[in-house]
Structures are given as C-alpha cells and as structure tokens.
C-alpha cells in the first residue's frame, strides 16, 4: 500500500519529473531550503498527496465497513451501503444541489450527505426494531425498502430540476478528485478510529456471523454489539460518502478477497481487506488520472469497470471451491 501511495505521487495529468516530485516531498517534510518550481510543489503537495490519502481512507472505510456488514447480516452479498446510507447521502446531496443550499458554505453537499446518510440508517434501524430486537433479516429488508423509496425521492427531485442533472450525476458516480488536506485531517482520524474499533470487535463480528442464537450463547450482548457495530460503520461510511460520493464494489469485494486468502475470521479479514481496499482505490485513482489524457474521470467508473470482472472471477472461484456451503 505504501509503495502504491509513493508510486501514485508520480501519476497525474501534468507530467512532473521524478526528481521534482521527490524534492517537493522532501521540502514538505522540512527540507525547506530545497527549491522546486512552485507549480510542481503545489501539484504534488496540495493536489496529489491529499487525494492519495483520501483514497486510502475511503478504501479502508468501505472495506472494513463491508466486512462488518457482511458479518452482521451473515450475508456475503451485502456492502457497507446496505442499511440505506448511500441512498440517504444521495438524497442529502441532491437536496443541497437542487435547492442551492448554502448554510454549510462550500461543504454544504458534504454536510447534507453526511447528515442524511446517518439519518436514513437511523430510520431503517428504528423501523426494524421490535421488542428491543432488530433481527438482521428485517434490518436488511427495511434497508433495501427505504433505499428504494429514497431513490424515488431523489429521482423526483431531479425530475423537478433537470438542469442540476449533470452535477448530481457526477456526485453519484463517486470521485476523490479535489479532496483537500483540510478534509483529510477531519476524515482520516474518524475512519482510522472506526476501523480500529471494528477490528477490536472482531470477536463479536465472528460470533454474530454464526447467528444471533450462537452469539448469545457464547456471551455476546447481541443487540448492544450490533448497535455499536452499525453506529461505527455508519459514521465511518457516512464520512466517506460525504467527501467522495458513492464508490461501489470496494466494500463488497475486498472482504471476500481477504476471506479467500486468509480465512474468514475478522481478526484477519478486517486489517487485510483495509489494506487491499486502500491499495485498490489508490490505483483506481491513478488509472482515473491517466486513462483519458488531460482529464480525470470519476473513480466510481473505474472501480466498477475493474471491480465487476474481478468480482465475477471471484464468484467462479467460490463456485469451484469450498468457500460456501452448498
């Protein structure tokens, strides 16, 4: 992952010589007397670096979120968006775009996406609550149902203001372009903290993966653990969605890659899928930069294009092997 991050510093629409990139980073690290062209320094330090850090953070959050949701829902085809967070965030973003809302300044879209993402998960959680319990199947179904409902609302809003289609379209595709150090400083600590908490809860996640009856019998406070896991995952993913839009497939695939390589225990799945997801997104970001000369295409397109064939290949492997019980 580190290698990818360093490698990625050299990738971008503007061709910056190898030595200038190195010198720029050295200057940033405290060798202030080094002189580099200010444009190159600006591109490397102010534009490229925060994007790479951002892509890394997003990759970690989505992969770890995917692993935890797959365990809680005991379902291999769930991703971190399954509880309605992505549709909620989309609704928030679209409201901000369509109404031209400006109460949060330049971060209005992000803030609205964040708030609505969390709000919708909360609504889904409350809908599936019965006698203090939230059975995973109900959570999953209400997540899907509410998502569909909200997607219709988003469509309705767009229909009423077709001139915003372009902006919304790009937001929905997902992108790490333009992520700044300011955003990284807020987002990275939250995401790392959430990932560490989920890692520390890998025992609970493993037990929940074996069903709530078994989890309870080995001593897990099922509802409490589930609520904490959902809250932490939601916070982490809402932060991601608010800065990058909806990037697909990362959260679905990398937990499975880890399971195939290192087995199903979340003790290994969480850290390894975090590294895979981060590396993958950094690489996708590089590809997004170079695939069309002089232009950066949304990363969500790349993850989908690479992710889908990869996922199908993986399914073939699962089908042949013993990954899933027949």
């Amino acid at each position: 992952m580190l290698l990818t991050m360093i490698f990625s510093l050299f990738i971008g629409p503007v061709n910056i010589p190898f030595n200038i990139v190195i010198l720029s980073v050295m200057k940033q690290l405290g060798f202030y007397w080094i002189s580099v062209p200010s444009t190159s320094y600006y591109i490397v330090v102010v534009l490229r670096e925060p994007e790479i850090i951002g892509a890394m953070a997003i990759g970690i959050s989505l992969s770890v979120g995917g692993a935890s949701m797959q365990s809680v829902f005991r379902n291999p085809i769930t991703d971190p968006y399954v509880t309605g967070i992505s549709s909620g965030a989309a609704l928030g973003a679209v409201i901000a775009i369509v109404t031209g809302l400006g109460i949060f300044g330049i971060y209005s879209i992000s803030a609205m996406a964040f708030i609505f993402g969390i709000l919708v998960v909360f609504v889904v959680y409350m809908i599936s609550m019965r006698n203090g319990r939230t059975p995973p199947t109900f959570l999953l179904l209400s997540g899907i149902a509410v998502s569909l409902f909200i997607t219709s609302l988003v469509a309705l809003l767009l229909y009423s203001k077709p001139n915003t289609l372009n902006e919304v379209f790009f937001w929905l595709l997902g992108s790490v372009q333009g992520i700044s150090w300011n955003e990284d400083f807020i987002v990275l600590p939250i995401i790392l903290a959430c990932a560490v908490i989920l890692y520390l809860m890998s025992g609970e996640l493993n037990a929940l993966q074996m069903g709530e009856a078994h989890a309870k019998s080995v001593g897990i406070d099922v509802e409490r653990s589930k609520a904490v896991i959902l809250a932490v995952t939601t916070l982490s993913v809402a932060v991601v969605v608010s800065i990058s839009g909806i990037i697909g497939f990362v959260g679905l695939i990398f937990p499975h890659v880890s399971r195939l390589l290192y087995g199903g225990s979340n003790k290994y799945v969480i850290p390894s899928s975090a590294i895979f997801g981060a590396t993958f997104l950094i690489l996708c970001n590089d590809i997004a930069h170079v695939v069309v000369r002089g232009e950066v295409i949304p990363i969500g397109i790349i993850t989908g294009l690479i992710g889908v064939p990869f996922f199908i290949g993986l399914m073939m492997k699962m089908y042949r092997g013993s990954y899933y019980d027949a």
Partner: peptide
Amino acid sequence: PVPMSLSVHD
C-alpha cells in the same frame, strides 16, 4: 449456521 468461511479453529 456458518454462512461464510470460518475454520474449526475460528
């Protein structure tokens, strides 16, 4: 019920 791969040790 073990829906995703877990080893006996896990």
